[in-house]
Design a binder for these strands. Structure first.
Lengths: 147, 147
DNA sequence: TTAATTGCAAACACTTTGCACGCTA
DNA sequence: TAGCGTGCAAAGTGTTTGCAATTAA
């Protein structure tokens, strides 16, 4: 329950009204270990007796994403966007090309490469996104490589 | 004209029939300097008096992508997929978050970080995608930062 | 000849929007 | 109570597909 107060403050600090739907979405995303799509959030809430509409889920995600409370990912060849709680840690992902699962990596190998690039290109660099692809141990065991 | 023969051989080597549409799409993508979307390809062909249907453009892109003759990118918050000629060079991109232009970077700063990760996580790593985001010099001049 | 490719129109999947009602601050 | 949040149904957008006609091999 303490967690809800924390999330309610997060909303307040972002200038958003505190609604049960927003808290429920944040709470779910904070607890889940990998990025999930809108439909998965929708069904999770329904199963937990929180009546909500899919369009509200989308609107909520959009709102939270605009306030940078969430991160949003689109994986090539997957149609649905994936969302995760933004804990502000700088992260990268290991994406399984068989089951599409995303695992986060805490390390960032990029060091001061960005600084070098900025000087070379005159871009103002604001961030980067690094995904590393491969087959997760489970899919290797299932022999799903290549599917 | 020699270029067409080269592209026709590319198709043949991939086991694809040689059609004017496929050659035209490949030719355009080979000459353009940044990834483009299906509609841009469609209009380019129409303007060059190559009669084609948008759905054929999509089917062609899908076919060429499956044969790895093209690369496909999806940028978060952009709805349209971007395609580029796959010249097999290992590349990364500098993406302007204002005008969405993508510039390629030839360097790869990742070195043997992947090897380290593979050992640590038991993934079989097959590749990675690195995009670096920021504002391009043109958008900086236009004062478009933040839009 | 025959199997792959194409045009066209219709279908699709995910996401967004208009409007009337409900609820937070 | 003023204005943001929500449900519902309908619309939107990029992409895909079924089918008949066309074309490459």
């Amino acid at each position: 329950m303490d967690k809800n107060i924390e999330l309610e403050n997060l909303l307040k600090d972002s200038g958003l009204k505190n609604t049960k739907h927003r808290v429920a979405v944040l709470k779910f995303l904070k607890n889940v270990k990998q990025p999930v799509n809108a439909e998965e959030i929708y069904y999770h809430l329904i199963e937990n007796n929180i009546s909500i509409n899919l369009s509200t889920v989308y609107r909520t995600l959009e709102t939270l994403y605009n306030k940078e409370l969430l991160l949003k990912h689109i994986v090539t060849d997957e149609k649905k966007a994936l969302y995760e709680y933004n804990n502000k840690a700088h992260k990268h992902f290991l994406v399984c090309i068989s089951c599409k699962k995303m695992l986060s990596i805490e390390n960032c190998p990029l060091g001061d490469y960005e600084k070098f690039l900025e000087e070379k290109t005159d871009f103002i660099i604001t961030g980067h996104k690094l995904n590393i692809y491969g087959y997760c141990p489970e899919c290797q065991k299932k022999g799903l490589i290549g599917e």
